[in-house]
Amino acid sequence: MEVSDIIAGLALLVSASALIVTLRSFKSQSRLTDREIELVRIQIQQAHGEAKREKTASVSARLNRIDRTNWRLRVFNTGPATARNVRLLLDDQNHIIEESFANDKFPMNKLEKGQSVDLAAMVHMQTPPKEWLRIAWEDPSGEVKENRVEITI
């Protein structure tokens, strides 16, 4: 064995080890790229979800006692978007809201974020302790939403 053979063998070992290190770094880079792609997917999904939430109104109602004998039903929008064509859907079982009071104020063209509307409520000894009220509205996306709210005394 000559010196040139030894040098050639060492060069072969060095190039083989460099090849192994390069393959490992490619594998590591590939894993990192896959994680980055997954992270971008998650960020895109979150952005779409937030954009959808920004176009969603959330209309609800609550019965408030003003004094000993006066009650008000407050209909309000807690969502970030404006609710359009807000309607109270009263059924025959309704004992709290007089239909004429509701017809005076509803349907509303729009209910802005944080805006509320008060209706006079009639609470008496025969009023059931809880009733259901349905509220329907349209989101800015044009989708019709409905919320069924339990009103308790």
Rank of each mutant, 00 (worst) to 15 (best):
T127V: 06
R24H: 07
S30G: 09
S15K: 06
E98Y: 07
S17E: 12
V123I: 15
M122E: 11
K113R: 12
E138C: 02
L111V: 04
P128F: 09
R72S: 10
G79S: 02
S141A: 03
D67P: 00
E143I: 04
E50L: 11
R62D: 10
G49T: 09
L90R: 08
T56F: 00
A47F: 11
L111G: 07
E150I: 14
W132F: 13
L19W: 09
A83D: 00
A102H: 08
N94K: 10
P107Q: 02
L111D: 02
R148L: 15
R65E: 13
R68C: 03
S28P: 00
R24C: 06
T78F: 06
S4C: 01
S116A: 08
T152E: 13
F76K: 03
G114T: 07
K105Q: 14
V86H: 00
L23N: 08
F106D: 02
T56H: 02
H48C: 01
R74I: 14
N77A: 02
I44Y: 09
L32Q: 15
S25W: 05
S15H: 04
N64T: 09
A11K: 14
I44C: 01
F26Q: 12
W132L: 15
P107T: 01
G9C: 04
N103A: 13
A102C: 10
R31H: 07
S116P: 07
E131G: 14
W71N: 02
H48R: 06
R87V: 09
A102G: 10
F101C: 06
Q93Y: 10
D34F: 09
R84F: 12
